[in-house]
């Protein structure tokens, strides 16, 4: 098996997996776009292997090193985005729990006043 065939298989697989999870409403389209973009890139590289070879020539890297560079860049970018997203989610959930706690106190006070 050649590297190009492997990329074609992985790209197609990634495409199908992403569409499947969006269809199940378990993955938001917002995040699916990134994965579909990555799958498209894999497919493009599979169909036009010279893309990575040209990049490898241009940067004086070997083919595996150039492929690894792209893979690591994709992982880094996505993991970093997830960290930022987690930080947003953390702040939101904290604010929600604070609001719940304060509302519960307000209800308790009102109930005591009424009884």
């Amino acid at each position: 098996m050649t590297a190009e065939t492997l990329m074609l298989i992985c790209g197609t697989g990634q495409f199908l997996i992403t569409v499947y999870w969006v269809r199940k409403r378990e993955l938001r389209e917002k995040y699916a776009i990134v994965w579909l973009g990555l799958a498209t890139m894999l497919l493009l590289v599979g169909i036009f292997p010279t893309l990575i070879m040209d990049f490898a020539d241009w940067t004086h890297l070997s083919f595996p090193a150039a492929a690894l560079f792209f893979a690591l860049a994709a992982i880094y970018l996505y993991a970093f985005t997830v960290s930022i997203s987690l930080s947003h989610q953390y702040r939101r959930s904290i604010r929600l729990s604070q609001e719940i706690a304060l509302l519960e106190q307000r209800i308790r006070t009102l109930e005591t006043e009424q009884s």
């Binding site: 719940i100 706690a101 304060l102 519960e104 106190q105």
Partner: peptide
């Protein structure tokens, strides 16, 4: 009075 956070934060 008191407020109770739903989880340890």
């Amino acid at each position: 009075t008191f407020v109770s956070l739903p989880m340890n934060a």
